[in-house]
């Protein structure tokens, strides 16, 4: 199953991946409109971690032994046939049990229509995830 991997030696913490993820999951999908109208309503599902010059972008690892699926009270967090871990927005009630157990801390709150848990979904309607495409230095690979 293809996953997103990071190459810390090439990440320059520019955060263009965070911007691309934000735009991809916005309503308008247009960068200027999305930032103007939707900023602060939700976050990107990818986080650039930084410690001095060391940095890398982190998102859901779609773990084989995903603790979030176990912890989910409603059964909203499941694994789809491709192997990706996905959250069903219609079932999620925002109890944050998944946030409580995610070892990478890559699940966040999305409180736009109702409060739900949001995380990387590997951009199912794209060939290559938005963050991987947006990285100007090939510090993210999809393989």
């Amino acid at each position: 199953m293809k996953k997103i991997y990071a190459k810390p030696e090439y990440c320059m913490a520019c955060r263009l991946c965070e911007i691309a993820c934000f735009v991809k999951h916005s309503k308008s999908k247009k960068i200027i409109k999305a930032f103007r109208e939707e900023r602060g309503e939700f976050q990107a599902r990818i986080i650039v971690e930084q410690s001095g010059p060391v940095s890398f972008a982190l998102q859901c690892r779609h773990c084989e032994d995903a603790g979030c699926i176990e912890a989910c009270l409603t059964g909203a967090m499941t694994r789809n046939p491709d192997g990706a871990v996905v959250c069903d927005e219609n079932k999620c009630v925002g109890c944050w049990s998944c946030i409580m157990v995610c070892p990478y801390g890559v699940i966040n709150h999305d409180r736009r229509r109702k409060k739900i848990a949001a995380k990387c979904d590997l951009c199912p309607d794209k060939n290559t995830p938005a963050c991987v495409e947006a990285c100007p230095n090939e510090a993210l690979v999809y393989e």
């Binding site: 971690e49 982190l58 801390g105």
Partner: peptide
Amino acid sequence: FGFICVGEENWKKRIMPL
């Protein structure tokens, strides 16, 4: 604080390509 704080030996093998 973030995942990067848990030490390079811990995060390195979890996020980098095999």
